[in-house]
Amino acid sequence: MAAPRFWREAPSRYNLVATRCGNCGSVSFPPRSFCPKCHRKSVGRMERFRLAGKGSVYTYSVVHEVPSELDMQKPYVIAMIEMDEGAKLTAQVIDVDPKDVHIGMRVRATLRRLGDEGPDGIIHYGYKFVPILN
């Protein structure tokens, strides 16, 4: 993926910037310019804020057949995380034995390397999730 296309999304990829609808309060991640529920009523009322970064695993999979750029990480855990503010997103869960991942598991976001554009290319960063240890 070309570098400008990646930088453009940096606020949400680095800082989990989302939007909250001023009409119904529902949260969209990544940010949207209007609310999927309220449409016209939400125009100009979508306020940007940072998700706190904590959530629970809604579903997950241990991926064995992986894209070439993730070959070194295989097998890895991909998950859908339900953030505490209400939005769901897709991300890797790391620093955990895949066998210990389960639906409902508490996780928090951390900034990690997602990939790069070849050995001399730019490195992309973004969110992955790690278990919250009690």
Binding site: Y60, S61, V63, I78, T90, Q92, L114
Partner: peptide
């Protein structure tokens, strides 16, 4: 932008549905 770049494959999206 928000599934594949983060590590999802087409099969793994369906695997998450199955799970």
């Amino acid at each position: 932008e928000w599934e594949v770049t983060l590590g999802a494959t087409f099969a793994s999206l369906h695997a998450m549905i199955a799970k």
